[in-house]
């Protein structure tokens, strides 16, 4: 019930933001209404799924500890750059992906920045937050307004004008390059294809490619075909985007909402307390005390009452079991 409530409240907040941001729908472009409606459902879906996710013991504890560490005044004084640095290196430039594979890192960066650019343009446009006005009917001098307030004036024929009006095309090229790499990898690479599921692993890539290709075809239609087939392409593109937005909270794309938890985890684990818990048996370091205590509490929540074993290192766990087998089950093998 709680996830539904949080989802509804989030969707209502977005509706209010759209209403106010578009100056009481004065700037709202009704041709883009399906996108705006899909984004409201997206807001509901993300909030619903996120609330359901953090209701599990492991995620709930990490959520509290992570936010506690991120908002801790003590942490901010001790390591003021830790949070912005982690957000940049971890969420923005995704250094950890480079440690997995440089090619995957590069492809993921293309998709990430492409999607971010597309989202930064599309959502405010469909919500009526961005508007472009011209003093003369056909320009070329335009003013970009955010929430009805003039922000920047530019010439549509200048480089800035070209970039502003072709931002989605640039995003599409980035996304197609990255998603195609991952699609080929999923077809050829046994590491990727082991256990892969069509709906979970392939649909997101196909959706990204379909959205990007149909988006580029819209530009192609207006530039080269004098608008030929534009209406059909527009419907196709809109259907692809709307279905993807509705799918987003429930499939692989949900990792976008989950991934920031890693920053909270890092902050909680390594910034808050420096004390290290050592293996009860051999004295090797296991992890930070705060982390081990949190894990033991999570295990108790889950009725996994062997939580004391979390204070024994993995190697000693195996040695204990092996030595117990050797002394009592098959003596002296």
């Amino acid at each position: 019930m709680r996830p539904v409530l949080v989802g509804v409240v989030t969707a209502l907040v977005l509706c209010a933001a759209i209403y106010l941001g578009s100056r009481e729908l004065h700037n709202f472009d009704s041709a883009l209404a399906p996108y705006a409606i899909a984004s409201v459902f997206l807001a509901f879906g993300i909030a619903y799924r996120y609330t359901a996710w953090i209701s599990s013991p492991g995620a709930r504890r990490l959520f509290k500890k992570g936010w506690g560490a991120a908002l801790s005044w003590r942490n901010l004084r001790r390591a003021p750059t830790a949070l912005p640095r982690m957000i940049a290196t971890y969420l923005g430039f995704q250094k950890f992906l480079g440690a997995r594979s440089r090619a995957r890192w590069a492809a993921h960066q293309l998709i990430f920045w492409g999607c971010l650019l597309a989202a930064a343009i599309t959502f405010p446009l469909t919500w009526g937050w961005f508007t472009f006005t011209a003093n003369t009917g056909a320009g070329p001098q335009y003013t970009m307004n955010i929430w009805g307030l003039p922000v920047v004036e530019f010439n549509a024929l200048s480089l800035l004008g070209w970039v502003l009006f072709h931002g989605l095309d640039i995003a599409a090229v980035l996304v197609i390059a990255g998603a195609t790499y991952f699609l080929i990898r999923r077809m050829r690479d046994r590491e990727a294809s082991t256990g892969q599921r069509f709906g979970y692993d392939l649909v997101p890539l196909l959706a990204l490619i379909i959205i990007s290709v149909t988006g580029l075809l819209l530009t192609f239609s207006s530039v080269a075909l004098h608008g030929g087939g534009y209406e059909f392409l527009a419907v196709l593109h809109m259907a692809a985007v709307v279905l993807t937005l509705l799918y987003l909270p429930f499939g692989k794309f949900f990792h976008i909402a989950q991934r920031p938890a890693a920053v909270g985890m890092q902050l909680f684990k390594y910034t808050e307390h420096g004390e290290i818990r050592h293996c009860r048996n051999c004295g090797e370091p296991i992890d930070t005390t705060a982390y081990v205590d949190n894990l033991r509490a999570t295990m108790r929540d889950l009725k996994l009452d062997f939580d004391g074993l979390a204070e024994v290192c993995p190697r000693c766990k195996r040695l204990r079991r092996g030595q117990a087998y050797r002394s009592t089950v098959k003596p002296g093998f």
Binding site: R100, M265, T298, D307, P314
Partner: peptide, 24 residues
């Protein structure tokens, strides 16, 4: 999805999972 927290590594009673901290 994996965020490299290591919960699985230390909760496993058998001492099985491994973790690559750099790759999270």
């Amino acid at each position: 999805r994996c965020i490299g927290c290591g919960n699985c590594v230390n909760a496993c009673p058998m001492g099985v999972p491994k973790i690559d901290l750099a790759a999270k």
